[in-house]
């Protein structure tokens, strides 16, 4: 007994970095929509960066903590509070047994991540703890969390001690440092998402290619972990192409026959048969994950070389953050 769900929130599920290596069997990857926030949440409590955390969506849950623990909350700002007092994100927080963590209105972004030192005690299915909601496998009983679910924590990591040794008279204690999260998650009201050309980019008319690069698209309400449906200028093919099913990737932007694009995300099917006009660069996938239905986005085409260097830059920043965090733990 470690954490009890009082209210589950809109969609709260266990996710890690996904179920890799089984796509040729049709097994979808799943995993956190915003992988950088997941990795940072884990770094902040001393976990390996692929450990499973709770992914919470728009309306967060209400959780009872039944064991002293070190946690971190990252991602979108869903107004977290412990026993009624607002608690800062992007830093380690030592929480005392008996506290209640409650999430309130969504102030920025869409998805928040709650990590616990040691990780949640969730069995792996196909090398991953991620929940595949439609396939009802992995995570906690293969589904989103419900009221009265109880999740245990694994043995806590050595990083537990420094904060807990501090005199904790309140419900929780905070580290005196936090992550400069804007470096990893620069959220804005109408974000510009960088993309490379999709496999079938050349199938589209010149005007559609231009519109895709210049016009805003609105994220529709039919958007979930599987993908975001967008509405905007109808994107047209130069002529009808019979496309055979082929593999798709995280961030592939398919265009359905009605001309509307769909951005395929964490719970996407492994293969698809619609032409792909563009591909979101890996470094910008977390930005998409934090976009709410109704928000508008724009695409900006970059070269593959740019996509790669942006990806490597993010990885360097994460590496730097990792050293800084372990140093901060040692100093305190």
């Amino acid at each position: 007994m470690s954490l009890r769900v009082i209210k589950p929130g809109l969609l709260t599920s266990i996710q890690d970095l996904g179920r890799k290596g089984f796509q040729k069997h049709g097994v979808i990857v799943s995993g956190a929509m915003d992988a950088y926030s997941l990795r940072i949440a884990n770094l902040l409590v001393g976990n390996t960066d692929h450990e499973a955390v709770l992914e919470m969506t728009l309306m967060g849950p209400k959780l009872k903590i039944e064991k002293d623990c070190l946690i971190a909350i990252t991602g979108g700002n869903l107004s977290p509070a412990i026993d009624g007092e607002p608690v800062p994100m992007w830093k380690p927080v030592f929480v005392k047994k008996g506290c209640t963590i409650k999430f309130g209105p969504c102030k920025s972004g869409c998805r928040a991540y709650l990590s616990v030192a040691g990780g949640y005690a969730i069995p792996e299915v196909m090398n991953s703890k991620s929940t595949y909601l439609r396939g009802e496998l992995g995570g906690y009983k293969g589904r989103a969390l419900q009221a009265d679910d109880v999740i245990s924590f694994n043995e806590q990591s050595h990083h537990q001690s420094p904060l807990s040794k501090k005199e904790v008279t309140e419900s929780f204690a905070l580290a005196n440092w936090s992550v400069n999260y804007k470096k990893f998650l620069p959220l804005s009201e109408s974000p510009i998402i960088r993309v490379t050309k999709g496999s079938q980019f050349e199938y589209f008319t010149e005007s559609s290619k231009n519109e895709c690069a210049k016009m805003p698209f609105t994220v529709s309400n039919q958007s979930d972990r599987m993908g975001y449906r967008l509405s905007g200028p109808a994107l047209k093919l130069t002529h009808k192409h019979e496309l055979l099913s082929e593999a798709v990737s995280n961030g592939s932007i398919q265009v359905t026959p009605d001309g509307n694009p769909i951005i395929l995300l964490a719970d996407r099917q492994t293969t698809g048969g619609y032409p792909k006009i563009a591909q979101v660069i890996t470094a910008d996938l977390p930005l998409i994950a934090q976009v709410k239905p109704g928000q508008s986005i724009r695409f900006s085409f970059v070269t593959l070389e740019d996509a790669e260097s942006l990806y490597l830059q993010k990885e360097r920043q994460l590496k730097e953050l990792k050293s800084a965090v372990s140093l901060a733990f040692k100093n305190k």
């Binding site: 005196n176 440092w177 936090s178 992550v179 400069n180 050293s323 800084a324 965090v325 901060a328």
Partner: peptide, 16 residues
């Protein structure tokens, strides 16, 4: 009291 923040290596450190 926190009187400022110093950022180093992507971490914000409170200055007491």
């Amino acid at each position: 009291d926190t009187v400022g923040i110093i950022e180093a290596m992507k971490l914000f450190n409170d200055v007491e």
